[in-house]
């Protein structure tokens, strides 16, 4: 183990924990809110069971607007809202607010795209069997789109990690923040490289897991 890693052991572990916390909350937000929002986007499209041009345009616009913000500006823009929700705009907990919002917008778009891959005929078969909208979603749509949903989530998680690296601006901490403050600003280039290496390994692991799982559940 290189000397410098041992020297900063506590700080490194703490920054890893902060990254996991921020990304973890983002994943939860993506699944709990992004998945339903993406499904709504899909079902409100023309020709789908919930066809509704108004809801579609509004949600579609909202998702686009959030995604078009440069993320750093979104964080700053959301400070009043964050203060309202968390009570403070500084710290790891506060950092999860903008992260969750971008996570929802990001994943909902990928969910919509995966659902579009479900053959229209399968939906028709479901309708012809008397399935309700709820049954169509859970017994047909999600079953048929599941490998795409997993791949989309994998891509999203990797983006969340990337987004989380700039949360230092609001004191969110995390591996990226540590690498900048200790590695870059204190000229400890080797420490910065080790931090980047940790990120690379993390991303590799996530991508490998995501790809493997999605391949395993894909029987098409």
């Amino acid at each position: 183990m290189p000397e410098i890693l041992i020297q900063y052991k506590t700080e490194i572990w703490q920054s890893i924990a902060e990254t996991f916390a921020m990304v973890g909350v983002s994943i939860l937000a993506a699944i709990l809110v992004g998945l339903p929002v993406g499904t709504l986007l899909f079902l409100c499209r023309k020709g789908q069971v919930f066809e509704n041009p108004y809801i579609f345009s509004i949600v579609n616009l909202l998702v686009n607007v959030i995604r078009s913000f440069p993320f750093l500006l979104l964080v700053v823009f959301l400070i009043p809202f964050t203060r309202l929700v968390i009570g403070t705009a500084i710290g790891t907990a506060a950092a999860t607010v903008p992260l969750s919002i971008i996570a929802i917008a990001h994943y909902s778009r990928l969910v919509e795209q995966s659902l579009l891959d479900v053959p229209k005929g399968v939906m028709e078969a479901a309708v012809s069997m008397g399935a309700s909208v709820r049954e169509i979603i859970f017994k047909f749509l999600y079953v048929e789109a599941r490998s795409g949903l997993v791949l989309g989530l994998t891509t999203s998680i990797i983006s969340f990690i990337s987004y989380s690296t700039i949360m230092g601006v609001v004191g969110g901490g995390g591996i990226g923040d540590f690498a900048i403050r200790y590695g870059y600003q204190q000229f400890k280039t080797d420490l910065m490289m080790y931090m980047i290496l940790i990120m690379v390994i993390l991303v590799q692991l996530i991508q490998f897991t995501g790809t493997t799982v999605s391949r395993m559940i894909d029987k098409r």
């Binding site: 053959p119 012809s128 008397g130 079953v143």
Partner: peptide
């Protein structure tokens, strides 16, 4: 009631429309 009625009307298609992941 329409959904209920459809349960006693079977339908098959040219492209089968089975759920590929089931």
């Amino acid at each position: 009631d329409l959904r209920q009625a459809r349960k006693s009307i079977g339908m098959i298609f040219q492209h089968f429309n089975l759920v590929a992941n089931k």
